[in-house]
């Protein structure tokens, strides 16, 4: 399994040409650099391309990158540097938003690994839709009867379901990352992750309707 830490992606400062130890702010001349187009969110944050992530480290890196790129700190610079700061900061925010949420992180990582999008593969685990249908019916009954206790109970059921699905996703990614499998197995694993993530979409929709 390749090591995807940021050590592999050193860039040269566009201004002074020195090598930069991390993206964005040059150690040598402190110029704000644009993001290389090939950099993915994990590389930007200087984190290994894995599902499991240390949220605390992620947050710290996010703050550091924000301090380098946020337009507030470039308010006195040239207009083109200010414009660059805007797009770079937007990318940094997007990276953090994606990686800090497990569901978004899973979808993003799946895409990076060449897995199917939900539009291409709509499948869900066997019997899942049946379960969702029953839950939805119970929810509707609870709503009509204004039964707060029932709603709370169902919310708990959905939350448990969501957590369970995420645990599966975590496990599936770990399996994927562990063994160097043949292509057929790999495709199957990616497909299974997609199945779990599709199921999560349904659960999330139901949860949002409960608010």
């Amino acid at each position: 399994m390749e090591d995807n830490t940021n050590k592999a992606v050193l860039t040269k400062c566009t201004h002074c040409k020195h090598e930069m130890s991390q993206p964005l702010l040059c150690d040598h001349c402190e110029t704000l650099n644009p993001l290389p187009s090939f950099m993915d969110f994990f590389q930007l944050m200087g984190l290994p391309r894995r599902f499991e992530i240390d949220l605390k480290t992620l947050h710290e890196k996010y703050i550091t990158l924000s301090r380098h790129s946020h337009p507030d700190f470039h308010a006195e610079d040239e207009p083109d540097v200010m414009a660059l700061a805007m797009t770079v900061a937007a990318a940094v925010n997007e990276a953090y938003r994606t990686l800090s949420d497990p569901i978004r992180r899973a979808g993003y990582l799946l895409e990076l690994l060449g897995g199917p999008a939900s539009a291409q593969d709509k499948s869900v685990p066997g019997g899942f839709l049946n379960t969702m249908l029953m839950l939805q019916e119970e929810l509707e009954d609870a709503r009509v009867a204004a039964d707060a206790a029932a709603k709370a109970r169902l919310k708990q059921v959905l939350l448990t379901q969501r957590d369970g699905l995420l645990k599966s996703v975590e496990r599936l990614f770990a399996d994927l990352e562990a063994a160097a499998a043949c292509e057929a197995t790999r495709q199957q694993q990616l497909h299974e992750i997609r199945e779990q993530l599709n199921a999560v979409s349904f659960v999330r929709k139901s949860l949002s309707q409960l608010e």
């Binding site: 939900s118 539009a119 709509k122 869900v124 839709l129 049946n130 249908l133 199921a199 979409s201 139901s206």
Partner: peptide
């Protein structure tokens, strides 16, 4: 027949 669309979370029986 029970089907679903993940993107929008629609479930249909």
């Amino acid at each position: 027949g029970i089907v679903g669309a993940p993107e929008c979370g629609d479930v249909m029986k």
